[in-house]
Design a protein around this nucleic acid. Structure first.
Length: 855
RNA sequence: GCGAGAGUGGCGGAAUUGGCAGACGCACUGGAUUUAGGAUCCAGCGGGCAACCGUGGGGGUUCGACUCCCCCCUCUCGCACCA
């Protein structure tokens, strides 16, 4: 091997630029379908806010280690990047700075692409997509049309947060203290016609399949299961006295049915107003108006008082004929169950308090074991198990059995049925926003809502709009967009002006990456079948429910539309922790940026800066580090290395400048290790065995290969992988026989460089050339370890006496248990501790320790 | 309130199956080198003079527990009148 020229000093800047250009020119990371085993690695794509932050650096560094590792192992890796490009911030920027949302977004994408490229991630940039591009959203519109055809997309009326000043719907997070975040006007609950996706049709499958997602973190699955919120129970019809009307209630406790002494309805219940008797009418109407005016935030706050109103009407408990009063109650929700509840004060705490407040009688129907409940002396409801009493033919049954028996009886009598209820609601996707995918629907005065014909897609989002920030969506004022003739009857009609929730775009982008330029449909079946599912998905825990649930739902819908074959989109999921940093503040100037603090003083006024707690990096708290500055000072490799070394990926990462310096120092150490030995190892071959100290070095080299391989593969413990490579570097520095064994030195150095490639690829490519190789380190593949090199001929065995370490012995690795035991009992210090005692028991754990019990 | 996760040196973190607690890094200390500082290299670094004590606290199982079981405390996250 020839000796290449090598700089003495590590210069990240020049190396990184050089290799990034090379990778781009050679299309090193282009994914093509071929015979190799595929591996689809995906990180959650970013919203193009303008600049990348440390969370991105961490997310994509983690992903890049896995992508490069799998590629080195010979997998055909798909590793794409793109932009979640629709959304409100673009409109807000337009309002504030007068820039068009499109211009703002595309400029941001250009900035962020450049920043990401400076990190040297191994993306196939030929597959880049942006969701605001018509070639993307046109296919989303088509999927919507198919869903509309199948009844999976439908329109219904629902209550939303509405700002009367801005004339628009507000998301929950845009409501601050019941007021609009922008203009401060009090938010109203407004009933609006909205488009919904029928995710509830898939509730059961979405729940069941969580048990198949063995590669997902358990907390995420739990959150999804809780969100879906399946509960089993009964629907029971209660006839209303002096009326043909029946009220259907949902209960999970049919075993308490005989104890129902009143009924409560949601204020929004369609029968609420009609049930009011003449003398209760005024009070009932006032109550309904009051409850409706309360927004959801107020209704769920701590100081919310449970209250209700008697309607004046009664219903009949179908099993015992008891006449029970019907109330309206503000804690009964219209959108769960049937909006009507049979109330059992003795066995439900809310009903208990309600009954006390309004003087409603209580009947005990479940007696717990070893206790006798008396309604008169009870201070709270009994919600545990027990035996049925006061329940006619069901007396004496335990309540779990009674649930089934009573349910069966109700079905037999035709007054009720077993049902399953879900907390999950259909997904409202309409947004009265401009910067989003237009919903491809036309409203005809004759035909009602009509789908835009497929051949007329895409419904393009017009670019020539005025964004004033007042008076709702600009689309509603755009005559050329608005006016259209009905595709069915040709009459003058009007386009839908709402756009999709941006979660719709992120629900199928992972599939589009497999065929981003396909122009015959949303997805090229051959490509999706080849690449899906995503083998490893990586992103923040904040998407545990919404995005991940919607993407799972969409995958099932696309399957049922014949677009994909998979049931689930993401085989394995890694949720990475947040990037945190210490906060600092000045009594005078509030939060301070790190560079505003010098020697513990505020640079603005000289006051002593106060160090606050560690919190998620955020602009508002000013505890941020700019990736560009980090790259400028240390290089991308150092930035990558630190974000991988400081903590395991799923935990929060505490950013710390000194830790970054430590990583930079380590890379310099690696560089110098190669530089200092280059002449020595020039032209030397790597041996397949060694003796003495050289053998120890060789053993450590191969042990490190094993450790790093196993730490990356599946375990994602990059911090420990890096730590073991640091140990190898320490061993290389400490290897005194470097002149006698240059071949072992070469093996150690080459292995070091190859093992670090997924973490710090620029430096490793450069060092690989310095070591005399051509063709790029990608071609070298991932090193494998030699089992023979791992074998030790001597082992250190720990000797415990009564559970405490009392000595260590060195024995031959193949020594049998008796020999080891004998040696242990003869060890000097052990003998001292055994003096005057009798050995009762000896446990020998081969290759590890000997435990002696003595008394 | 319900559900989930976590608690280890001055700090970030190791310990993969119940087997030497504290790998690796940071900070700190000492030494070498240097006119000096920085950089670098080498060494030390849980507490205690010691016997010993140490993984949030208390109990248990075991020859042996950071690891398994029971009770308690603290923190983080998610859901929250879900009938």
């Amino acid at each position: 091997m020839r000796r290449a020229f090598m700089e003495e000093r590590y210069d990240a800047g020049s190396i990184e630029g050089k290799w990034q250009t090379r990778w781009e020119q050679d299309k090193t990371f282009k994914a093509q379908e071929d015979g190799r085993e595929k591996y689809y690695l995906l990180e959650m794509f970013p919203y193009p806010s303008g600049r990348i932050h440390m969370g991105h650096v961490r997310n994509y560094s983690i992903g890049d280690v896995v992508a490069r590792f799998k590629r080195l192992q010979g997998y055909n890796v798909l590793h794409p990047m793109g932009w979640d490009a629709f959304g409100m911030p673009a409109e807000n920027a337009a309002i504030q700075h007068g820039t068009h949302p499109g211009k703002w977004t595309y400029e941001n994408i250009d900035n962020m692409r450049a920043q990401i490229k400076k990190m040297g991630f191994s993306y196939d940039w030929d597959r880049e997509l942006a969701t605001c591009h018509p070639e993307y959203y046109r296919w989303e519109q088509l999927i919507f049309l198919k869903m509309f055809e199948k009844g999976l997309a439908y329109k219904k009326s629902s209550f939303v947060n509405w700002c009367p000043e801005c004339q628009t719907v507000l998301a929950n997070e845009q409501v601050e203290n019941d007021a609009c975040w922008r203009c401060g006007t009090e938010v109203e609950q407004k009933e609006l016609e909205q488009w919904f996706f029928k995710i509830t049709d898939y509730a059961q499958e979405l729940l069941d399949d969580t048990y198949k997602l063995t590669g997902w973190p358990e907390p995420v699955l739990t959150m999804q299961r809780n969100w879906i919120g399946r509960s089993t129970g009964c629907e029971i019809d209660f006839p209303v006295v002096d009326s043909d009307v029946k009220i259907k209630v949902f209960t999970t406790r049919p075993d308490t049915l005989y104890g129902a002494t009143f009924m409560s309805l949601a204020a929004e219940h369609p029968l609420a107003s009609g049930l009011a008797s003449a003398d209760c009418k005024a009070e009932v109407e006032a109550f309904i108006a009051r409850v409706r005016a309360q927004d959801k935030i107020k209704r769920t706050s701590d100081d919310f008082v449970k209250e209700g109103v008697f309607t004046g009407s009664y219903s009949i408990n179908p099993v015992n004929g008891r006449r029970i009063p019907i109330y309206l109650a503000n804690f009964v929700l219209m959108d769960y169950g049937t909006g009507a509840v049979m109330a059992v004060p003795t066995h439900d705490q809310r009903d208990f308090e309600f009954a006390d407040k309004y003087g409603i009688p209580k009947v005990v129907v479940i007696q717990p074991e070893g206790e006798v409940l008396d309604p008169a002396s009870m201070t709270e409801a009994w919600t545990g198990s027990g035996t049925l009493v006061n329940s006619g033919p069901f007396d004496g049954l335990d309540n779990e059995t009674a649930k089934d028996k009573i349910a069966a009886y109700l079905e037999e009598q035709g007054v009720g049925s077993k049902t399953i209820n879900y907390r999950l609601r259909d997904w409202g996707v309409s947004r009265q926003r401009y910067w989003g995918t237009p919903i491809p629907v036309i409203y005809c005065p004759q035909c009602g809502p009509v789908a835009v014909p497929e051949q007329e897609l895409p419904v393009l989002l017009p670019m020539d709009v005025e964004i004033s920030g007042e008076g709702g969506s600009p689309l509603a004022k755009h005559q050329a967009f608005l006016q259209v003739s009905c595709p069915t009857c040709g009459a003058d009609a009007r386009r839908e002006t709402d756009t999709f929730d941006t979660f719709v775009e992120s629900s199928w982008y992972f599939a589009r990456y497999t065929c981003p330029r396909f122009d015959q449909g949303p997805l090229d079946r051959a490509a999706v079948d080849h690449w899906l599912p995503v083998d490893q998905y990586i992103g923040g825990i904040e998407h545990a429910v919404m995005h991940l649930l919607y993407a799972r739902f969409f995958t099932k819908v696309m399957r049922d539309l014949g677009l994909v074959s998979q049931d689930e989109p993401f085989k394995n999921l890694l949720t990475q922790g947040m990037v945190c940093m210490e906060t600092t503040s000045c009594p005078e100037h509030g939060w301070l940026y790190p560079e505003q603090v010098v020697a513990g003083k505020c640079t603005l006024c000289g006051a002593t800066a106060k160090t606050g707690r560690n919190e998620k990096m955020s602009k508002s708290k000013k505890n941020v580090v700019d990736p560009d500055q980090l790259i400028a000072s240390y290089g991308a490799d150092t930035a990558r290395l630190f974000s991988l070394f400081a903590a395991p990926p799923e935990k929060d990462l505490e950013w710390n400048e000194q830790g970054v310096e430590g990583c930079y120092r380590f890379l310099n150490r690696v560089w110098r290790a190669v530089y200092d030995n280059l002449e020595r190892i020039s032209g030397v071959a790597i041996p397949t065995s060694a003796e003495g100290a050289a053998r120890d070095l060789r053993r450590q080299v191969h042990r490190t290969i094993k450790k790093v391989t196993e730490d990356i593969d599946g375990r994602f413990h990059f911090n420990t992988a890096i730590a073991s490579v640091m140990e190898l570097v320490n061993a290389i520095y400490g290897f005194e026989q470097r002149d006698e064994h240059p071949g072992c030195m070469r093996e150690a150095l080459e292995t070091l460089v190859r093992l670090l490639t997924p973490f710090v690829p620029h430096m490793c490519e450069e060092l690989w050339v310095c070591l005399g190789h051509q063709g790029g380190i990608e071609a070298a593949g991932w090193p494998t370890w030699d089992e023979a090199a791992l074998v030790e001929d001597k082992k250190t065995i720990v000797v415990q006496v009564n559970g405490k370490v009392r000595g260590k012995i060195i024995v031959a690795a193949d020594a049998d248990d008796d020999t080891v035991q004998q040696a242990a009992l003869e060890e000097g210090n052990v003998v001292r501790f055994l003096e005057g005692k009798t050995v009762r028991k000896v446990v020998v754990v081969p290759g590890r320790l000997v435990s002696i019990v003595a008394s």
